[in-house]
Amino acid sequence: MLGRTAGSLFWMFRYLERCENTARLIEAGFQIALTRTTDETDVWHSIIATAGVVEKYTQVHSEYSQENVVDFLIRDTENSSSVISMMRMARDNARAARTALTREVWESTNQSWLLFKNELKRPIKTRDLPIRLETIRRQTALVRGVLYGTMLRNDIYDFAHLGCYLERVESTARILDVKYYVLLPSVSHVGSSIDNVHWETILRSMSAHQSYRWLNQGDIDPLSISKFLILDKRLPRSISYCVEKVYDHLCYLSKAYKNELPALKAIQNLHRDIEKTMIEDIFADGLHEFLQDIVAKNAEISAQIEQDYSFYS
């Protein structure tokens, strides 16, 4: 496979994953805003902060209203991390990697783009927001499903998944890091309403609120939430799970290509470190520092993969 094609596959699935994560985040904000009696401004402010786009947002909007935030994160073509922008980039990468994709994967991606473009032409009314978000989640799930159902299990599949899981590690780490202070036992008070908003935002934005409830009947405490989102391998968006997936796919590539490249070494080390880590250690050494370290290492591995497999000339 061409290095450039591998790069396009990698980025196609990174963008799709980012698209979906943004939709989940908005959904979390929307759910919480609906069930609250107080001012919704802080909910939407928290969503923008979690998405990591406060600076970009304040250049365009002065108020944190639902309309503004939703428009900015979904429809704004000037915002490179809006759903519509990312879907366009995912589709451009799919187009560039066209020869490595089954017709079904290409068509579902192309259709998703056409559908988004059409549905997001006009500002989204509140009553339509759940349907629009549903479309985004359904379409990204469709692409993933068709990939799963029709593609060869070879290097193409590996590069697609590397993009997906590296993006997920970053997303989860970033969401936790923006909120790390509410998870620290010293400042948070179980049951206080403001903290509940934050936790719920975190859990819902990773579609983990249901799973968390299944595993922890009734108890909500920062330590167990952190443990769940960082170290629980049963959760498909936990850092530990995603790191292991990256490791797996680099192993498959190493086997197929019969070589051992620097990215594999790097992920081996990260994987080993996380396997040994206890949640208590993380809190003792500093949650923020831990997450920063994960984000940095994740970025290094991503760059190393780009180099190892000649994504660019």
């Binding site: 290095g3 590069f159 000649s310």
Partner: peptide, 9 residues
């Protein structure tokens, strides 16, 4: 020879 840059050289 003309070659193309692949993931394996």
């Amino acid at each position: 020879r003309v070659t193309m840059r692949t993931t394996q050289g």
